[in-house]
Design a protein around this nucleic acid. Structure first.
Length: 239
DNA sequence: TTCCAGGCAATAC
DNA sequence: GTATTGCATGGA
């Protein structure tokens, strides 16, 4: 099973190349091969986030992208940028209604606004401390995917991110069943990559790329039914 | 018009 | 413990 996941990772990497996640609005890099991308991807540069502000922007994106297309999230982030409100301090100073209005394009804005306003004191209190997964999961609006996304992309911790796309692809190629739990899928991916990548920093990069690659592949072949049309991964469906 | 998007909390069984 | 349901905008 580990071997098969590894094959999936390498097939996707060969097909699409490095993805440059997590996108940042203030970074002007692009990846023209990416579906639905406007800007902000930093392909091949794994030095991000380089500041607390960039780290915060990633956390913000983790909330905003819950069940929402990234293009919509980007619209919200650009609204905030225009208001000079891409920092935790500025958002706390802002009127709730103005903040909520700014993130309206990404949907569920009333709940996401509350989640983020409650998250900010937690974020500021961290200072240089890296939060644990458990600490994050205790926060309102932070479930397993949001926690892992923050840990992997904002805090550079070796925590694999599973999303609906990941499960959809894995079901199609016969790796899991419909009801396989989040934690099981996460663990399967982590074990598979740990087996072949011993260096910690490279492992984190591989986690980052694998998740991004699964999203990219799913956007192309698993967004509309029937899922998996023209998906080249199914050719490796032999074990 | 209908379906879907880089989920989560609250509630029901 | 697992299964539903509400949350909401914007694009295909």
């Amino acid at each position: 099973m580990s071997e098969k996941i590894s094959v999936v990772y390498h097939e996707l990497y060969d097909a699409y190349g490095p993805q440059g996640w997590w996108p940042l609005v203030e970074h002007d890099g692009t990846n023209p091969t990416k579906t639905g991308a406007i800007s902000g991807y930093h392909v091949g540069d794994y030095t991000f986030p380089r500041t607390k502000k960039e780290q915060f922007e990633i956390c913000l994106g983790c909330f905003l992208t819950q069940n929402t297309a990234w293009t919509s999230v980007e619209r919200s982030l650009l609204n905030l940028k225009k208001l000079h409100a891409l920092s935790p301090q500025r958002i706390m100073e802002m009127d709730d209604k103005i903040f909520t209005e700014a993130i309206k394009p990404s949907g569920y804005h009333n709940q996401k606004s509350r989640y983020i306003k409650k998250f900010i004191p937690f974020f500021l209190a961290l200072d240089e401390h890296v939060p644990t997964r458990t600490e994050l999961l205790e926060l309102l609006g932070v479930g397993p995917e949001t926690a892992d996304s923050m840990l992997l992309y904002a805090f550079k911790q070796p925590e694999f991110v599973v999303d609906t796309y990941t499960k959809r692809i894995f079901i199609q190629v016969g790796l899991i069943r419909e009801k396989t739990s989040y934690d099981i899928v996460k663990s399967m991916c982590e074990v598979a990559l740990k087996n072949e990548i011993l260096d910690q920093d490279r492992l984190i990069v591989a986690y980052q790329e694998f998740h991004a690659l699964l999203v990219e592949h799913a956007k192309r072949h698993y967004s509309k039914k029937p899922y998996g049309e023209n998906c080249f991964l199914q050719m490796f469906d032999d074990k």
